[in-house]
Amino acid sequence: MQGSALAAAVAQTGLVQAAPPDPDAARDALTGSFSIVINSAPHQMTVDTRVTLLDLLRERLMLTGTKKGCDHGQCGACTVLVNGRRVLSCLSLAVMHDGDHVTTVEGLAEGHGPDAKLHPMQAAFLEHDGFQCGYCTPGQICSAVGMLDEWRNGAPSLVTDDLSAHPELSPAELHERMSGNICRCSAYPNIAEAILAVSREGA
């Protein structure tokens, strides 16, 4: 296709201007050792300090239930529970979790295989069809478990009017508290129903 005028004779637009220093030069200094408990199993790990918790789970431990959506902490697909609190594993370096207990979607159920007893949140997503493509589901479920815990402990949200009272889990409260987990299929109505069902059970 023809454009208009030739703007500059030759422009250097290179992907980089000059070769950076060899990233392997200080390789040893870039690794870190730590212990971490993942889904009740203790691990002693040595990894590159730049490895995220998400990549540790997916690439080292083959726990691929936790998904990489945007890798920017914007979509919520990588949400896991660290010591019971929800954390975006793509924004968290693995070596920062020395001594932490991490629970992924694979660790929510009690037991394994056909006899496993689903976590109430998993059972509720099943019951209420809280997914379409399923890619956000592990993050939604982990986030919902952590969110209900925050709510039960009385944590307010952006839309809480009375900061001194225990907030009621209204649809607006629930939607605001789950707004960090994108579902591009917009299965939000069923997701909300599933979470509300669990909130009523455990209240």
Partner: peptide, 20 residues
């Protein structure tokens, strides 16, 4: 990580035209 780091070592020369 190695693949993505290596990409940035490319030296690319281009002529720029006005885009539509």
């Amino acid at each position: 990580a190695q693949a993505r780091a290596a990409v940035r070592r490319a030296v690319v020369e281009t002529e720029t035209l006005d885009p539509i």
